Simulated assay, not measured.
Amino acid sequence: MFLRDDGILTMMFDHIADAIKAPALIRLAPNLYLARFETMKVYSTLVAVKTLLDRGLVRPGDTLLDSSSGIYAYALALACHKFGMKCHIVGSQTVDRTLLVQLQILGATVEQVPALATLKLDQSRRVERVAELLAAHPGTHWMQQYHDDIHYLGYEPVAAHIAAMLDVRRLTLVGSVGSGCSTGGLITALRCHDPAVAMIGIQPFGSVTFGSEHVADPGIIIAGIGSSIPFRNVRHELYDAIHWVSFDAGMAGAVALLRDHGIFAGLSSGCTYLVGLEEARRHPDRDILLIAPDTGHRYIDAVFARHAEATRPDALAPIMIETLDELALPWSALAWNRRQLDDVRGAPFKIPMNEGQEPWRIC
Score class of each variant (00 low, 15 high):
E111V: 10
I8F: 07
E355G: 00
N337R: 15
A249K: 06
L57C: 04
A115F: 09
I300L: 14
R282L: 13
N337A: 10
H15Y: 08
Y43W: 09
H137I: 08
C192F: 00
I300P: 00
D148N: 15
I89E: 08
A22V: 01
W142K: 02
A131F: 06
E128M: 07
D217F: 01
Q104T: 08
A252C: 12
R170P: 08
L341M: 14
L106V: 03
A160V: 06
T10A: 14
Q145S: 11
S207K: 03
G91S: 15
E309W: 02
R282V: 05
R125M: 12
L99V: 03
V208F: 06
D167L: 04
H214G: 02
W244K: 01
G250V: 11
A280P: 01
T140Q: 07
V177P: 03
E38L: 10
F37H: 09
P204I: 13
L103Q: 04
L277T: 05
P138F: 08
H261V: 05
Y299D: 14
S246K: 05
R191C: 01
V47N: 02
L78A: 03
R36E: 10
D217M: 05
A280N: 12
S228Q: 15
G139P: 12
Q112V: 02
D260H: 13
A135V: 07
R232M: 12
R59F: 09
M1G: 07
V42R: 02
D14Y: 06
I16G: 00
Y43N: 10
T140L: 11
E309D: 14
G91K: 04
A196V: 09
V344S: 10
V101F: 02
V95Q: 06
G180N: 10
G226D: 13
W244P: 09
A29S: 14
A305P: 07
M199S: 15
D260F: 06
V95I: 14
A308E: 15
V95N: 06
Y72M: 15
H161T: 05
A164I: 09
D5I: 06
E326F: 04
E132P: 05
D294Y: 03
R338T: 03
M143A: 13
L53M: 08
G253P: 10
P195A: 10
P204T: 12
G206P: 11
Q144I: 01
F304Y: 15
C271E: 07
T51S: 14
A328D: 11
L25G: 06
C363R: 02
S176R: 00
S182Q: 13
A73K: 00
I89N: 08
L46E: 13
V215Y: 07
A108G: 08
H193T: 05
D325F: 03
M1E: 13
S67Y: 13
I229E: 12
L334P: 00
V234H: 04
T98E: 11
D343Y: 04
A117H: 08
G56F: 10
R306E: 11
E309P: 02
H147Q: 09
